[in-house]
């Protein structure tokens, strides 16, 4: 619909009826109920999750494809662009709060629950428990080695920090209309992100097989893997966004004025970067 003169970019954009939302809902119904069946050892569960995930991917391709088409068709005005900016900011805020729940849990466990397990009253139950971080709790006793900050985590910190710089250079190249430089620096950013994920996977493998550090290694294992794992998933999502942006750059999308999708992906990437710095300090360094 249009609130402006014919031919001008409308200030509002209201999309046509769409079947993508209901497709996504069916996908999540299959995935959610399928996972419940799967985790309780019912045979069809993992198939439901697999089918649901395939439907979800189909929906994401279709929906984002539609949005990209609309954007290329110049259907989005300045006002719509501002809406996108608000919404991406609030989405990132919601992600911040998701991580806050897990960082809060880490804080509580380190400062309250573990010291309490070493208190006088708990000595009645577990007289030999030292209650020092890192810990797998008073009851589990499989020896493990904690993960320090030097080594892969430090390399990964440098990788992510560098990727933030390369992405900013790519953004400046985009604004300056320098497409060759944009492609090079965006590609480098993706490469750094994927390398980060590779190192992270290697670190996990190493921890499982040599350090005997698992998700089930008490609260230390729980907080370590859940925090770094969710961060890793977010890096993967951010890298996927950047790969899509790279594909769009190759197809000639974006110009110096219209490139909010690129900026949104960049914001997300910087957010993931900041979460990593917190992880590096609070999970790896202060072990």
């Amino acid at each position: 619909m249009s609130a402006a003169a014919p031919g001008a970019t409308p200030s509002y954009y209201i999309p046509q009826p769409s079947h993508w939302p209901i497709t996504g809902s069916i996908a999540l119904l299959l995935m959610g109920s399928g996972a419940a069946f799967w985790f309780n050892q019912y045979p069809a569960g993992h198939w439901m999750v697999a089918v649901g995930f395939a439907v979800l991917l189909y929906m994401l391709f279709g929906w984002f494809g539609t949005v990209i088409g609309e954007s290329q068709g110049r259907l989005y005005s300045k006002k719509v662009d501002l809406s996108f900016r608000w919404s991406m900011s609030w989405f990132i805020f919601s992600e911040v709060m998701f991580f806050a729940a897990f960082f809060g849990a880490l804080f509580y466990i380190r400062n309250i629950s573990v010291p309490d397990l070493g208190s006088l009253s708990s000595k009645l139950l577990w007289p030999n428990y030292a209650a020092q971080w890192p810990t797998e709790g008073p009851y589990l006793t499989a020896p493990f080695t904690p993960m320090g900050a030097i080594g892969i985590p430090l390399i990964n910190t440098l990788l992510l920090l560098t990727s933030g710089v390369t992405l900013t250079i790519a953004h400046h190249a985009l604004k300056a209309g320098n497409r060759g430089s944009l492609k090079l620096w965006l590609f480098l950013t993706i490469l750094l992100g994927v390398t980060f994920l590779g190192f992270q996977a290697y670190e996990y493998y190493h921890l499982h097989h040599e350090y005997n550090l698992k998700l089930s290694t008490g609260v230390y294992g729980s907080t370590f893997y859940m925090l770094t794992g969710f961060h890793g998933v977010h890096v993967a999502v951010g890298a996927t966004m950047l790969i899509v942006m790279f594909g769009r750059v190759l197809k000639g999308h974006f110009d110096a004025e219209h490139h909010f999708a690129f900026e949104a992906a960049a914001w997300y990437w910087h957010f993931v970067d900041v979460v990593w710095l917190l992880l590096f300090v609070l999970v790896y360094w202060m072990v």
Binding site: A105, G137, P138, L140, S216, V219, G221, S222, M226
Partner: peptide, 8 residues
């Protein structure tokens, strides 16, 4: 995981 389990 042992978030809510004192034994862990």
């Amino acid at each position: 995981t042992s978030f809510f389990n004192a034994a862990g």
